[in-house]
């Protein structure tokens, strides 16, 4: 099962290496990691999408992360109402004839063209990972020359549904 876990960490040297080495050593599968500074000076937030077999393994991921001295707080936010976003840059094969068609495809995704050359075009898209997957699928027929994704980053929504609410959003929602 896929889970989104966030970790607030101290910006001390080697902290990223500590965390990734831990996940690798304990054989936790990481789908993506994103890291960046937070509102607090000296703190960064890491967001992981992990693929774990069961709850026992999931519990181990959070507990092992928590054991790291430079990790301040670990949250599994998969079952919370969250906003999760990813950014992707996609370079595809294109020419002046195709541009209009491509524009038509990307418009509904609110993606934008950020670079154009004679034989290629680069597109920027943000959104839930599913949305990005969908756009990539649609662009594949043109021939993807390069793809760069940031990995998911997420925030817990301020307003949480009552805890007995069974209509929880999709975990990557």
């Amino acid at each position: 099962m896929k889970r989104i876990i966030t970790a607030t960490v101290r910006n001390r040297s080697g902290v990223l290496n500590r965390v990734t080495s831990l996940l690798q050593r304990r054989q936790f599968n990481i789908e993506s990691i994103s890291v960046g500074r937070t509102e607090t000076e000296g703190m960064s937030k890491m967001t992981f999408v992990v693929d774990v077999e069961d709850y026992q393994k999931l519990e181990q991921v959070t507990k092992q992360l928590n054991k790291q001295i430079d990790v301040i707080k670990v949250s599994d936010i998969s079952e919370k109402a969250i906003v999760a976003r990813e950014l992707a840059l996609i370079k595809i094969v294109s020419n002046s004839q195709l541009r209009g068609e491509i524009q038509g495809i990307i418009d509904p995704f609110r993606a934008s063209i950020i670079d154009i050359s004679k034989d290629s075009i680069s597109i920027q898209v943000t959104g839930k990972p599913e949305k990005i997957e969908a756009l990539i699928e649609l662009l594949k027929p043109f021939g993807i020359k390069e793809l760069a994704r940031t990995g998911v980053t997420a925030l817990v929504r301020s307003q949480q549904p009552a805890s007995n609410d069974s209509t929880l959003p999709s975990i990557l929602g």
């Binding site: 026992q56 519990e59 181990q60 507990k63 092992q64 928590n66 054991k67």
Partner: peptide, 8 residues
């Protein structure tokens, strides 16, 4: 004393 050992 180590929570990670419990249930591992």
């Amino acid at each position: 004393i180590d929570p990670a050992e419990i249930g591992k």
